[in-house]
Design a protein around this nucleic acid. Structure first.
Length: 271
DNA sequence: AAGTGGACCTGCTAGC
DNA sequence: TGCTAGCAGGTCCACT
């Protein structure tokens, strides 16, 4: 579900409200992707620091370490003073003096993992292979060109891997490639510097636009106030197989790459 | 090292 | 109306 814009919108919707609160209770429901990795008692009576994002992960700092959160495909976080009884898909609650942070995740691909810090233990292991943040000044055409040099596979899969640049998932990778006029099947190492520059700019613009629009809500996504996004209404290619391309009217195509759907315009997007 | 396919889990929808 | 196959925003891991 949640790509970088959705994760960042979620963070913005509760980080300032939970900061400085003190933890008062923990409820662990059905198993998520990994075990939490600590005795839940260990999380009690600690003050909460500033929530930060790295890629699609959120780091929630506590005094004796912190929690690395991931929303998987169908996860969302809510934060409210009165949360009520947990529903069937509510698998983690962290109660604090300012409200309860609750992870709702029907498919349970999400995760809540304790780590002594962001830069050690399980968190470090999960974060260490990640590429640049898309809004980092270092992320530009020259960086992309260099990072893609050793990659023979399709550019779409290189973007999705997160090893070069983080944050673009299936929707935004498709949209960014459309904006840059690049066929998703193009071999990564074949992209010219000029096209790498266009692609880096397109990734940033696509993610920034999604942030402006509150992210994409296909079905599950809500921010921590329960508000849906509307980028999906503005998508040019994602989920639009057979519809006419907004730029040239050719029908949008759908193919499968690495077991994921790719949508693109066969006329506007070149190899 | 980089590419590929399978795995995890539930819910919804299109088609018969 | 009811069943089934196929599909869904992610990403780790084992294997080549």
């Amino acid at each position: 579900m949640p790509e970088l814009p959705e994760v960042e919108i979620t963070r913005l919707s509760f980080a300032s409200r939970i900061q400085g609160a003190r933890t008062t209770g923990v409820r662990v429901g059905k198993p998520l992707r990994w075990p939490i990795g600590c005795d839940p008692q260990h999380l009690l009576s600690q003050s909460v620091g500033e929530v930060v994002r790295r890629g699609k992960y959120l780091w929630l700092p506590l005094e004796s370490g912190g929690l690395l959160l991931h929303l998987g495909m169908s996860g969302s976080l809510s934060f409210a003073a009165n949360v009520g009884e947990p529903g069937r898909h509510d698998h983690f609650d962290l109660s604090t003096t300012k409200g309860t942070l609750r992870l709702t995740d029907p498919r349970r691909f999400g995760a809540v993992v304790w780590s002594p810090s962001m830069h050690s233990g399980p968190a470090a292991k999960l974060l260490c292979g990640l590429g640049l943040e898309p809004f980092d000044a270092e992320f530009d055409g020259a960086y992309l060109k260099s990072a893609l040099r050793s990659r023979s596979g399709p550019i779409k899969q290189a973007l999705l891997s997160g090893a070069i640049v983080v944050g673009a998932g299936n929707i935004y990778a498709c949209e960014a490639l459309f904006e840059a006029g690049i066929d998703p099947r193009t071999r990564s190492s074949k992209l010219s510097l000029a096209r790498c520059e266009r692609l880096a700019a397109a990734v940033r613009r696509t993610l920034a636009r999604a942030l402006d629009l509150g992210g994409s809500t296909l079905r599950d996504f809500r921010d921590a106030h329960g508000i849906a996004g509307e980028f999906q209404l503005h998508a040019q290619v994602y989920g639009r197989e057979h519809e006419p391309c907004a730029r040239c009217s050719a029908p949008i195509r759908r193919i499968v790459q690495g077991q994921r759907a790719s949508y693109f315009c066969g006329r506007c997007q070149r190899r």
